[in-house]
Design a protein around this nucleic acid. Structure first.
Length: 729
DNA sequence: CGAAAGGCTCTTTTT
DNA sequence: GAGCCTTTCG
């Protein structure tokens, strides 16, 4: 069988050019994943390359899993030896194996974002600065940016140019110390330390170079400088490096992704073959043209010749809702209609939004209507308190030096160990240069001295905790992760503690869900299972858990939607301040990234795109009137439908053309005096809600907001120009 | 020491 | 609206 038989010429070239560097520039829907999988299959099946010699790096674990299952089908051989994963997980594996020469404990734990923030606060405190004055988030992202360029604290301080950078440098210094004392690495460390390991230990690098004869990197436009450096290191010997990306889909510059990587690739590898994938197999002509017009408004880009053989399809639908409630209602009702008409089923529809906060109202309305949905990252599972608590216990078992975890669980459930005691414990650990846990192990001895540091009952609590942990550590050597988890919730009394809380039942469910995750690591030999489990739960992306086979509408951020496709896509919140986000207003480069984000959203769709905007939206408590997104103006009129009569009678008030030049029944006055013929007490009739009485009337811009108590439908707030109220006498 | 209540600041996007 | 921090009281 010819593995490459069903690829088009460009795809085929991309897949079979296996010697030397290759840069694949792949537009959306151009069969990029197909090319990568076929290329690997070709290497294995046709060229006889062992999977052992291949490494493929993806952006998410989900992408890696998908690639693996496609490959399994394509090759029919075992892929156990294939190295496949995210940069972070690949690096974690390398460091666990070979990090010791850099003083990295093989038992290191990985600190996630919130651990990192906590540690930065600690560092600020340690150097006598106020966490309120220096936003830990800002410092964390500055440190992250430094690490993404392999800049350590000393270098950073050396080149600091402002007072803020000076502060960051000093925090960075202390932060690194704290990480070291805890035997912990943050996300960026995984990459940076691996690069440094390779730089400082050529023999180790040599081993990996010898092994990885073929490298593939997906989503190359979203790699940062350190990741690129890693690619160059690993590929230096064989130079069989294949990178795949699309500059127009670069949406992670805030995470230090650097488009220069794509631009420099051809410089660093002058012999590189460049392959363009320009045929789109995903979307209708109208959708593709809409996207092309939108992205063409960006100045900093090279134009591509994207085209498709697909049919023209329907026009992109523009919809205006009055409030975010109605926006959500419109989406749900429209989806129900699509399902009823057999246009699509639930699983084929996705709702995309700019910020996670927007998902809440959508979720509420989906629940209210009883429409099944899949929310990618609600309150993200691994960030839930009870889940983090259990993970902290497990991390502490794996690595008792981990002070962030120790701090989290030492008094959970309450053991009478409070602030004072902890402060003393930390002082002692500083004084004796021991980890807090090591101090705990020596409490009894300390208490025998002339000046015992703790009251006897406190000392007893501390010793009790230390003994409990030792018991769990011993147990971890011989039992699987699931049993260990069970033992933890049992022996620490965490289960009882949780169930005694008001919402304990639900939260206990989450612990059980974590336990289900642990079952996947069950057949690993005891200590390795724990390490693998902890790594697995730390390096997950939310989108990893998205189950595409389950039915239900997908609710997802635009960022997470990258790499996915759906027959029907709703993009909600098409408003100035949301998309583009307000934070991008004063920076043209960021504004272009917002446009790319919108481009990514539209190009997810196969058949139908709805762009939905809301007139009045509540944000952080207060309510604002939002202007339509400037991106809507980038789309030519002939590709847009909107302003025609609403599809369903019910959503008459919610659905509206975004460019309502002449609202049909509006009689706004704009001088604070609402429409003359409707005032509080007026009897009115609404197409969907029926008869009611106006409760209040308030001028908003050049329109009026009326609150109406309907006989059947309850109290609604409506915009006079949209609601098409009729007076009833 | 710890629970409860009140006040404060924010939120972009995530491996 | 929500989480985080501080304050207050038992």
């Amino acid at each position: 069988m010819d593995i490459l038989a069903d690829l088009n010429p460009a795809q085929k070239q991309a897949a079979e050019t296996i010697n030397g560097p290759v840069l694949i520039l792949a537009g959306p829907g151009s069969g990029k994943t197909r090319v990568i999988t076929h290329r690997i299959a070709y290497l294995i099946r046709v060229c006889g390359v062992s999977p052992h010699h291949i490494i493929a790096v993806t952006f998410t674990n989900k992408a890696a899993r998908e690639m693996e299952s496609r490959l399994a089908r394509l090759t029919g051989t075992s892929l156990r030896d294939l190295t496949l994963g995210t940069f972070h997980s690949v690096c974690a594996r390398i460091l666990r194996r070979d990090g010791a020469v850099m003083g990295i404990s093989p038992r290191f734990v990985i600190y996630d974002d919130s651990d990192q923030i906590g540690l930065i606060k600690q560092a600020l405190k340690d150097i006598g600065l106020d966490a309120k004055q220096y936003a830990p988030r800002a410092i964390s992202s500055a440190i992250g940016a430094a690490k993404s360029q392999s800049v350590g604290p000393a270098d950073y301080l050396g080149r600091s140019r402002s007072y803020f950078e000076e502060v960051v440098g000093r925090v960075y210094e202390r932060y690194e110390q704290l990480l070291g004392e805890s035997s912990a690495l943050d996300f960026d460390d995984l990459l940076m330390k691996t690069v440094r390991l390779f730089r400082e230990h050529p023999a180790i690098l040599g081993r990996y170079q010898a092994r990885f004869q073929h490298l593939l990197v997906d989503e190359f436009q979203d790699t940062n400088l350190v990741q690129y450096e890693l690619v160059r290191q690993l590929g230096a010997r064989h130079r069989n490096i294949c990178v795949v990306g699309d500059p127009d889909q670069s949406i992670y510059s805030w995470r230090s992704a650097d488009l220069r990587n794509i631009l420099n690739f051809e410089k660093d590898f002058p012999e590189a073959k460049v392959v363009l994938l320009e045929q789109n197999y995903r979307s209708t002509k109208n959708i593709l043209e809409t996207a092309a017009n939108l992205i063409a408004a960006n100045q900093q880009r090279k134009d591509k010749g994207l085209w498709t053989d697909n049919e023209a399809g329907e026009l992109v639908k523009l919809v205006e809702a009055y409030t975010e409630q109605e926006e959500a209602q419109f989406v749900v009702r429209e989806i129900e209609q699509l399902v009823e008409n057999d246009t699509a089923n639930l699983g084929e529809c996705a709702v995309l939004y700019r910020t996670n906060a927007q998902s809440r109202i959508l979720e509420e309305v989906f629940v209210r209507y009883g429409t099944p949905y899949k929310l990618v990252a609600g309150t993200r599972f691994y960030e839930r308190r009870e889940v983090k608590d259990i993970i902290a216990y497990l991390r502490l078992i794996q690595n008792p030096q981990d002070s962030v975890s120790l701090l989290r669980v030492i008094n959970l459930p309450g053991r009478g160990i409070g602030q004072q005691t902890l402060a003393k414990l930390f002082d002692l650990s500083q004084l004796y240069s021991l980890s807090q846990f090591e101090v705990l192990l020596r409490i009894s001895k300390l208490q025998e001295s002339d000046d015992p540091p703790f009251y006897p009952h406190i000392a007893r609590a501390l010793v009790g905790f230390a003994e409990l942990m030792q018991e769990l550590i011993a147990a971890s050597q011989e039992m699987g992760v699931v049993e260990l988890l069970d033992l933890v919730v049992e022996r620490t009394a965490y289960r009882d503690f949780l169930l005694s809380q008001p919402d304990g039942e639900d939260r206990w469910e989450n612990v059980l869900e974590l336990r289900t995750v642990a079952q996947q690591y069950h057949d690993l030999i005891p200590p390795e299972g724990l390490a693998a489990f902890l790594e697995g739960v730390t390096l997950v992306a939310d989108v990893d858990s998205l189950d595409e086979t389950a039915s239900g509408v997908t609710l997802i951020t635009l960022h997470q939607a990258k790499g996915l496709e759906f027959p029907v896509v709703f993009i909600v919140g098409m408003e100035e301040g949301i998309l583009p986000h307000i934070k991008s207003f004063d920076d043209p480069a960021q504004m272009e990234e917002e446009r790319r984000l919108c481009y990514v959203g539209i190009t997810r769709a196969k058949r139908l795109v709805y762009l939905v905007r809301t007139f009045r939206r509540s944000l952080m408590g207060s309510s604002n009137v939002n202007q339509p997104s400037r991106f809507l103006a980038d789309i030519p009129r002939h590709l847009i439908s909107g302003g025609e009569k609403p599809r369903s009678k019910e959503s008459a008030a919610a659905v509206y053309s975004w460019n309502r030049s002449a609202p049909p029944d509006a009689t706004p006055s704009g001088n604070g005096d609402p429409a003359p013929d409707v005032k509080a007490g007026s009897r009115v009739r609404h197409a969907a809600f029926g008869d009611g009485v106006v409760v209040s009337c308030q001028a908003v811009d050049d329109d009026a907001e009326v609150v109406v108590a309907f006989r059947g439908a309850g109290v609604k707030k409506l915009l006079l120009s949209f609601a098409r109220l009729e007076r009833v006498e």
